[in-house]
Design a protein around this nucleic acid. Structure first.
Lengths: 123, 123, 123, 123
DNA sequence: GTGGTCTAGACCACT
DNA sequence: GTGGTCTAGACCACA
């Protein structure tokens, strides 16, 4: 386990997103401890400081709390918080840009709508 | 005019996209000269080397040609080429990612579809 | 009772100060036993070793004595001793720093003086 | 220049405060560039990453802005902002604690008031 | 056991 | 020139 990394983005950000997704998907439950910095560093063959940096961001975003001498723990409500934040960001920031681009490129919307409908029916 | 810049992407890429969009939208016509490196550098309060780098990319993408002693000129067919390339990129790369994200976030597709329909009817 | 803790200072020091203040205010009388390490650990949801460390400091400061098999007891004269030490520390170390800071921040001293007068008149 | 450092607080925090004070006192003017990370690292015989960490905090506090490829610059209004923040923190957080402690220790307020008056008259 | 800090030295992207 | 990232390895405080 060592070559997931995308060269364009710093590892610590990718790692942060990875953990975020694990919280979102329930791979790590609220109240649980995150794997220790050292553990992750070894598993992913990454420097402990790099892992530390990822975890610190999650603390700053109030998704994770540090219990001194014990480790990092997923806060209660973290999963919902992530979901809410990401939804909001998509709706308010990403989607409008996407619409603008579609208009800008003068794309045929019927195809796009169809692909969206497919997704909708599978939910 | 100085704070358009997004911190996550290098200025020279943002500048390149800006020019590309001006070509696409007809703000700069095919055959026309691009504003001089110095001019742009002053207008946008950017280092001339940064502007050069942007222009060079456009030359590499064969949208623009350098005429020695005269400046940079938009090639004939550039606009269409941009449009084609961007369309393809959107359909093949961006849109699938967008769909995945929508599914991932479990978003309500009906709203999204409605906003797309609105755009479609205005075209 | 679990989140009194200030993240900047180690828990064992905060706990030590807490006990000190209880001695000072008479919540625990001289000659009385301190609550057992286990008890405190449970009450405050803290590791017993952390509590031990706090108590050990109080022993080192000769405010508390250990009676083997019985527990920790507040020494006679402890309250006065705490008061004397803390007074001295405040006057000699804390207050000068406070004055410097007030000057540095260029604060209006009249307000501060008024709040001090209020306290004085209530004593 | 190498042994200013207090062992109890991380260097990067001390360095941050040092820069903050330089902004506050006008040693570095608003709009000016901060000394480069490498320069400071050499001057103070500290690792560049440590300096970087300090500077990053100032960016997060919006006192300093990064201009890519150019360096870090003191934002307009930074000095006032620092002053306002520190004043507020003193009045709302530090001073009440000080008052409590004075009351708690049953200190003679007249001396304290006198020392405050002295400061006041020198302003 | 846990995370936090620091160093020395390397490499990279941006301007 | 600028800052950002990462490594490898060390040491420390806390629980």
């Amino acid at each position: 386990m060592s070559f997931n990394w995308n060269d364009k983005e710093p590892i610590y950000l990718q790692l942060k997103d990875l953990v975020k997704n694990m919280i979102l998907s329930g791979d790590i439950n609220e109240g649980d401890a995150l794997p220790s910095v050292r553990q992750v560093a070894m598993d992913y063959k990454v420097n402990p400081i790099t892992v530390s940096k990822s975890y610190q961001i999650l603390v700053d975003e109030e998704l994770v709390e540090k219990r001194r001498g014990l480790g990092m723990f997923v806060r209660i409500g973290a999963s919902e918080k992530v979901q809410t934040n990401e939804n909001e960001q998509f709706i308010k920031e990403d989607w409008p840009k996407i619409l603008t681009k579609i208009q800008h490129l003068n794309l045929d919307t019927t195809q796009l709508i169809n692909s969206l409908k497919e997704i909708g029916s599978n939910q």
